[in-house]
Computed example of a mutant assay.
Amino acid sequence: MIRAATADDIDAIAALHREARATYYRDRLPEDAYAGPEETARSRAAWAAAVAQGRVLCAERDGVLAGVASSGVRDGVMYLGQLHVAPAQWRRGVGGELHRACVDAWRAQGVTAVRLDVYEHNTRAQAFYAAHGWQPDPDVPRSSTHLVLRLTLEPSAE
């Protein structure tokens, strides 16, 4: 089930985010950079703000948070800021379901292009996004240690 996040979800979202990030940052960054107390507090505050703005979707399986996605406009461009699935839920369709819900919402808003930044060493995410139609952004191919991808959307048929 996909639903809008609420304030009651923030701790679970922050924990899922930390767990997912550890899978691709571990052995590449110091642990404090992705799971230390300061980063954990910063991440929780960012998620709380995004939830308060209505920019977060949650995927549930059997009443438990299985994935989360957030998007919003940055510098006049729609961005998929986060899409994380609990590692225990990988390869079970959670990410695809969240992605479809985001695409549907963007189309309903009349969005025709979306960007995202994906960590250069996160090959699992890169493969996921490529399978869902994302391509390297020709205008901005990189942002520091991240690749920039773009998804072009056809207008809604409605």
Rank of each mutant, 00 (worst) to 15 (best):
I2T: 15
R3N: 12
A4R: 07
A5H: 05
T6W: 06
T6R: 11
D9C: 15
D9N: 14
I10M: 05
A12N: 13
A14H: 02
A14G: 02
L16D: 02
L16Q: 02
H17N: 12
T23F: 01
T23M: 04
R26M: 03
R26T: 11
D27S: 14
D27P: 04
L29R: 08
P30G: 00
A33T: 08
Y34G: 08
G36S: 06
P37V: 01
E39W: 10
E39K: 13
T40F: 04
T40K: 09
R42C: 01
R42N: 11
R42P: 01
S43Y: 12
S43G: 09
R44G: 09
A46M: 15
W47E: 10
A48H: 09
A48I: 09
A49S: 13
V51Q: 13
A52K: 15
Q53S: 14
G54C: 11
R55N: 14
L57M: 12
C58Q: 11
A59P: 01
A59Q: 07
R61P: 11
R61Q: 10
G63K: 15
G63W: 12
G63L: 13
V64E: 09
V64C: 02
G67P: 00
V68Y: 12
G72D: 10
V73D: 11
D75T: 10
D75M: 05
V77Y: 10
M78S: 09
Y79N: 12
G81R: 15
Q82H: 14
Q82P: 08
L83D: 00
L83Q: 09
P87K: 03
A88L: 03
A88Y: 00
Q89W: 07
Q89I: 04
R92H: 13
G93A: 15
G93P: 08
G93T: 02
G93F: 07
V94P: 03
G95S: 14
E97F: 04
H99R: 07
H99S: 05
H99A: 04
R100A: 10
A101M: 13
A101Q: 02
A101R: 00
A101N: 02
V103E: 11
D104E: 15
A105F: 04
A105T: 11
W106L: 06
R107N: 06
R107F: 05
G110A: 09
G110N: 10
V111P: 10
V114N: 03
L116N: 00
L116K: 05
D117A: 08
D117N: 04
E120S: 06
E120Y: 07
T123P: 00
Q126K: 12
Y129R: 08
A130I: 10
A131E: 10
G133T: 05
W134F: 10
Q135C: 01
Q135G: 06
D137E: 06
V140R: 13
P141H: 00
S143N: 13
S143H: 14
S144P: 01
H146N: 10
L149K: 03
R150M: 01
T152D: 07
L153R: 08
S156Y: 12
A157L: 12
E158C: 12
